[in-house]
């Protein structure tokens, strides 16, 4: 894979910073996620991956820096504003709406200008897509953890977003379900979606991502295709050289 040009970039993050008290969680991070590809964002615990996702989706306010998407700076926008521009995410620990049914979980995430009938059709289709058809009328809180992950994933797709950020999709999901989930992710990529995965399971990252970004201490320390990253001295050092809890 050659160098990435500006036109191929979906999300262009420049010099992003965020400190919590004295801790600089993200400390001048510059990342460019390629359009229509699956990217992996990895790094040791506490390296700033989830904070980066939070900054991208408006959940946290960056102290400084820019996030360009389609020529617009997303930094400082409210979460719902970011969402309406076509960027969606899932959470490390699932956040389904527990006392709402599976169908209701899906229906609350419809674009404002879509009619109820269209929204319903889309919800049914996606519920089938993640094989939760039989559980449509069940409370989301009563689903197994893996099923909740699938629901959250399906819910994120309701508005047919351009960019999908997945925070540890494999955690707590059994092997069979994980294979399904990965197949779905590849299906999305083939339809031209941009996908970014934060994941600790290196098999998932190395086998499924086109490009990998490595963070440590809030900055990007390496970037490249899996084969390169696996050999990269800095990455190995970050993971094994001075590992921290």
């Amino acid at each position: 894979m050659g160098p990435v040009t500006a036109a191929d970039i979906a999300l262009d993050i420049r010099d992003l910073r965020k400190a919590f008290g004295g801790v600089r969680a993200v400390d001048g991070c510059t990342l460019a996620f390629p359009r229509g590809k699956i990217s992996g964002l990895i790094g040791p615990n506490g390296s700033g991956k989830t904070t980066t996702f939070n900054l991208l989706t408006g959940v946290a306010m960056p102290d400084s820096g820019q996030i360009f998407y389609k020529g617009e700076d997303l930094a400082g926008m409210k979460p719902y504003q970011v969402f309406r521009r076509g960027i969606t995410r899932t959470f490390q620990v699932t956040r389904v709406f527990r006392e709402m049914t599976v169908l209701e979980n899906m229906l609350c995430v419809t674009a404002l200008n879509v009619s109820e009938r269209v929204a319903r059709a889309r919800a049914y289709e996606l519920i089938d897509f993640v094989s939760l058809t039989r559980l449509r009328g069940e409370y989301a809180g009563r689903l197994s953890y893996g099923q909740q992950k699938l629901l959250e994933f399906a819910r994120a797709l309701m508005t047919d977003p351009e960019v999908i950020l997945l925070d540890e999709p494999a955690a707590g999901v059994n092997r069979t379900l994980l294979q399904d989930l990965l197949a779905h992710i590849h299906g999305l990529q083939e339809r031209g979606k941009t996908i970014v995965i934060v994941e600790h399971d290196m098999n998932v990252i190395m086998n499924h991502c086109a490009r990998i970004f490595v963070m440590d201490y809030g900055v990007k320390i390496a970037e490249g295709p899996p084969a390169e990253i696996q050999k990269d001295e800095r990455v190995i050092e970050a993971y094994f050289g001075r590992r921290r809890g």
Binding site: K78, P79, T88, E104
Partner: peptide
Amino acid sequence: IRLNAIREDEGAAEVLGINA
């Protein structure tokens, strides 16, 4: 349903496009 979503998890609701 969106009001319910706010009740269940306001942060998640906002991330899913609801102007809470």
